[in-house]
Design a protein around this nucleic acid. Structure first.
Lengths: 207, 207
DNA sequence: AGTTACTAGTGGTCAGACCACCAATAACTC
DNA sequence: GAGTTATTGGTGGTCTGACCACTAGTAACT
């Protein structure tokens, strides 16, 4: 593994892998050479090859199956965004921004879901709200999780989930009990334009 | 290094590093423990620690200086994007989530900024739009970067920046030229309620 | 005081040894 | 013959120990 200028072996391995994939026209799902074979062919230590593969795995470009092999993977950006977000969240004191941003995403989810919410969905949401076993926080989570799933925007939901988990460690909040029912009312009355104002007016309850 | 559910050691190391960073309130530029020290403290092999650090280095979260140590780094995604782009361009069925989510954040930024936009700000934004030196894409970026800064929500801006960089690698888009001026018009006329519809009606231009 | 040589600590890399896991095959049982 | 079980080879997962190269601080020298 010799490279022009001061490049670490594992970075060289990555470039060689890219070339290999391109050359053999590999698609997601296809198998990559084994670590030992790569090590031998690229004249690099197996540990260096692993450093490269682990890095690619971390950002979701490659999938590893114990005892089977390493496979090219259908890339999903949210995996990387998720990882980076978690670092970004910890790096700065943006705890204050967290709650606010999260609320924005919940609002957008509510609006996005609007066109896909049917009568049974509303009934289902009511069931969530009326569950005796769960507390207000759990209800909030379940309620919006349902809405996020309706949006069919996986990235949006991932980011929200992440923020939700972080917010629990910082400052939990929820809406007034009546808020959720007001939203459901808007759904059943097909009143899209009132969703935004509803969120704006709602004062959060911290606990 | 023992973890609850089937987690690779290097993934555990990353999580421990995140905890360490948060606990000691480390900021970009600060030094991380040496590989050998981490190895000992986390009871993991040095090679596993390296797999974790190399992965973090690859995506630019950490900087390594031979003979010195490993340092936390201000995140710059250039290398990540560059790396991912070659893989991503093979598949375009996931770009929708990204583009859509990004647009949502831009809309919210525009609305959040509303209350903080003054006449000089509008003038400044016009200057950005009329800059001859920059292309439409750069203008879009600069324009919204200005708005995001006005929101004073660092988290929101960080996430947007992240998505913006990723979207460039996947599918660049911008709005119609007239869109930006329409938004400025709403600002100067203090017409908050029309911002949302403006975004909804706007058709993106892909290139 | 300034220069040089040394040294301890760090990352960079490799080789080898196990282990755990999986899948295909072989051997066995009925 | 069909179904089960044991074997085996290949794979990733991990650790250890050994070098090398580099850096910065220190000691020794001039």
């Amino acid at each position: 593994m010799s490279f022009s200028i001061e490049q670490k072996v594992y970075q060289g391995v990555i470039k060689e892998l890219q070339r290999y994939i391109e050359k053999n026209n590999l698609n997601p799902g296809d198998k990559l050479p084994s670590e030992r074979e790569l090590s031998e062919r690229l004249k690099a230590g197996r540990s260096s090859v692993r450093e490269a593969l682990r890095a690619l795995e971390l950002i979701g470009l490659v999938e590893t199956r114990h005892g089977e092999g390493t496979y090219l993977r259908e890339y999903r950006s949210f995996q990387t965004v998720e990882l980076l977000s978690s670092f970004i969240l910890r790096q700065n004191n943006m705890k204050d921004d967290l709650t606010f941003t999260k609320k924005i995403m919940e609002k957008e989810a509510a609006k996005l879901a609007f066109g896909r919410i049917s009568a049974p969905d509303i009934q289902e949401l009511k069931t969530i709200l009326e569950a005796n076993s769960s507390d207000a926080l759990t209800k909030h989570r379940s309620f919006f999780k349902y809405l996020f799933e309706k949006t069919e925007n996986l990235l949006l939901m991932k980011i929200w989930t992440l923020m939700d988990e972080f917010s629990h460690a910082v400052c939990v909040y929820r809406f007034e009990e009546s808020f959720y029912y007001s939203l459901l009312k808007l759904y059943s009355e097909r009143d899209y334009s009132s969703i935004d104002p509803l969120f704006s007016s709602e004062v959060q309850v911290s606990s």
